[in-house]
Every structure is written in structure tokens, then in C-alpha cells.
């Protein structure tokens, strides 16, 4: 396994610098009644230890499936084909047996789900959600597990944890439940946390608290974070790097600052324009992206964003652009925007 790692990444540094996560040309194909659906179509990513990566895209862009494929976790046992490589701290996730995967889940990598109303089992007390995972992964006894659960509830800022631990999920507010979901994911101090739209189902005021909490915990526990959201505003300021996904592919990735100030892909630009700005006069129509994401069982040829792109030209439909770019700011576009900041050879428009 380590050998194949070295082959894929010949320039790999010593173990201390080993990336937390390497995703290489990952493809997830889900068999549906309407034919194979390429939910993730050739995604490559590298995440260093302790780094925060934002994955942004519309609904249906494949970002959630990507998050799950990284874990090797799928909603159904159904016909899902995954090709490509996922190295989680050097471990080839695809090569693992189911049993080995469950050892990994919840201990090395944790996941926070979108809707805290449905992510907790309605018939289990809050405490049980936490104790069962620490008992499994850490072999704690009942009393120790309960102590750990209380500790976790305190960690995620749930007041009155001694009472809350014996309550059922429905007795907690949405924000509190999401804190429990986070506590569940963090129970065994994973090195990587995948947060899939962790605030989408929450009130705006609570959203901020939850994001701040994730930010704080990431710093405290020194874990890497993948923050998946459809909202660039959520990712802004909380991630080191951002990858923009469209129709199963990464169309632009860069460090957060340069993506927010100098987006090169028209889709990224459009997403940025869609963030409401309080400085603008009220009642102004929000910028929206015309059209809808392509049908992934029959994606358009060439650049998949071309049918919705205002800058699209003939070559966009003909040839799919490659993800490339200078200095770690990669984008997949024949006619990038903000081209002035680019070196000459791709700055033509």
C-alpha cells in the first residue's frame, strides 16, 4: 500500500509531512434507473494536516458524494462504482475491507451532517449517541464513556450537560442538536473532519455559532477540516483553501484569499456575485446564475458550465478545459475572468 502511495506521489515528503488526504482522479458512478450517473467525475485534491479546505458548489454538484466517497461511506449498499484513489493519512481507503473501514470511521475521520434533525436517532438519548462510539473505538467502560460524553458536550458548548446527556434529541433545539452531531464526530478526536453543509438547516444566527465552534475546535484539536457548502460566504474566512465544484468536477481551486479576490472561473465569479451584500441598496434583485446544473447522467460535452456561461465560445463546447494554473491557483476554463492577474500564456481573452 505504501508502495503504491509512493508511486502516485513520487515527490512525497517524509512521514511528518505526509498529507492528511490525497484524492487522485476520483470518480464515483451511481447506477440509477436512468443509467449511470457520474456524481464525482475526476476530482483530485490534497489536504495537509490541520488544513481547512472549503468545497463549494450548487446542489447536485457532487460535493456531498465526494465527501462520502472520501470516507468510503455510502447511503446505500447499492451499485456504486468508485475509481481513482483516496489516501487518508497514507491509507488507501478503497482497498479496505468493510470492517477496517468502520475502524477508520469515527476515529481517524469524522463526519458532520447537514440536518441535525435527522442525523440523530430519535429513539436514542443524546448520551448514547456519544458513548457508543467512544466505547467502540476506545474500549471505554460505561462510566468512562459517560464521563467522556459529558466532556464532549462541554467541549461543543452545550450548557447543563449533565441534564442534556439524558435527554432525547427532540428535546433539544436545532443548534444544540448540531452541537451534539459535532460532538459525535469529534468523539475520538479524528484527524480529519468532513462537515457536509453543517449549517444549512440552521437559523442564520445559529449558523455563525456553529461555524465559529467548528473553527475553534479545529484549532484546539489540530485536525484537518473539509467544509462542504453551497454558500461561499460560509466558507469565507474559515478555510485555508477553497475548491469550487461544478457538475462533478473541480472547476477552480486556490487559497481562499486569491479565490475570493481573483476568481478565474466564470462559475466561481458567479457564485461570489450571488452572495448578498449588505452595502447594496435594499430590494435589489440578487444575482443568480441562469439555468440549472446539468443532468449528470448525460452531462454536456466540453466545459460543463458552458451552456450557462456568459463568456462561452465555440471551443468551450468542443473541448473540456483542463484544471491548471499558476502558483497553486488552478482553474478549468478556456476564457478565464480576471485574466489580468494571470501570466501571459493563459491570459488571452
Amino acid at each position: 500500500m505504501t508502495q503504491s502511495t509512493a508511486q502516485v506521489h513520487p515527490a512525497q515528503a517524509p512521514v511528518t509531512d505526509q498529507p492528511m488526504l490525497v484524492v487522485d482522479d476520483l470518480r464515483t458512478v451511481i447506477q440509477t434507473a436512468r443509467g449511470p450517473l457520474k456524481a464525482v467525475d475526476g476530482v483530485s485534491l490534497i489536504l495537509r494536516k490541520g488544513e481547512a479546505l472549503g468545497i463549494v458548489g450548487e446542489s447536485g454538484s457532487g460535493k456531498s458524494v465526494l465527501g462520502r466517497t472520501i470516507m468510503g461511506l455510502h447511503r446505500t449498499e447499492g451499485p456504486i462504482t468508485v475509481t481513482g484513489k483516496v489516501l487518508l493519512d497514507g491509507i488507501d481507503v478503497q482497498a479496505l475491507e468493510r470492517k477496517q473501514l468502520t475502524e477508520l470511521w469515527g476515529s481517524k475521520v469524522g463526519m458532520v451532517f447537514q440536518d441535525p434533525l435527522t442525523a440523530l436517532n430519535p429513539v436514542k438519548k443524546v448520551g448514547v449517541h456519544l458513548t457508543e462510539t467512544v466505547r467502540k473505538h476506545r474500549g471505554l467502560n460505561r462510566a468512562q464513556a459517560r464521563e467522556r460524553a459529558l466532556e464532549l458536550l462541554d467541549l461543543v458548548g452545550i450548557p447543563d450537560s449533565r441534564r442534556r446527556i439524558d435527554q432525547y434529541p427532540h428535546e433539544l433545539s436545532g443548534g444544540m442538536r448540531q452541537r451534539v452531531v459535532i460532538a459525535m464526530a469529534l468523539a475520538n478526536e479524528p484527524e480529519l473532519l468532513i462537515a457536509d453543509e453543517p449549517t444549512t438547516a440552521l437559523d442564520v444566527t445559529v449558523q455563525r455559532q456553529i461555524l465559529d465552534l467548528l473553527d475553534r475546535l479545529r484549532a484546539e484539536l489540530g485536525m484537518a477540516l473539509i467544509l462542504i457548502s453551497h454558500n461561499l460566504g460560509v466558507v469565507a474566512g474559515r478555510t485555508d483553501r477553497v475548491a469550487v465544484m461544478y457538475a462533478g468536477r473541480v472547476v477552480e481551486t486556490a487559497d481562499a484569499r486569491s479565490l475570493f479576490t481573483q476568481p478565474h472561473h466564470p462559475y466561481a465569479e458567479a457564485l461570489l456575485a450571488a452572495i448578498p451584500d449588505l452595502d447594496e441598496p435594499p430590494h435589489l434583485r440578487l444575482a443568480a446564475i441562469d439555468g440549472s446544473p446539468p443532468d449528470m447522467s448525460a452531462p454536456p460535452p466540453g466545459c460543463r458550465f458552458a451552456p450557462r456561461c456568459r463568456y462561452a465560445q465555440d471551443d468551450c463546447v468542443a473541448v473540456a478545459p483542463v484544471l491548471d494554473g499558476p502558483g497553486g491557483h488552478l482553474f478549468a476554463c478556456h476564457h478565464p475572468v480576471n485574466a489580468g492577474s494571470l501570466p501571459d500564456e493563459r491570459g488571452e481573452r
Binding site: F113, Q114, N121
Partner: peptide, 10 residues
Amino acid sequence: DFILAAKAKG
């Protein structure tokens, strides 16, 4: 989701 969440915590 809670089934997925249970799997995700191992």
C-alpha cells in the same frame, strides 16, 4: 441520515 451518521462514527 441517522443511519448514515451511525455508520460514519464507526
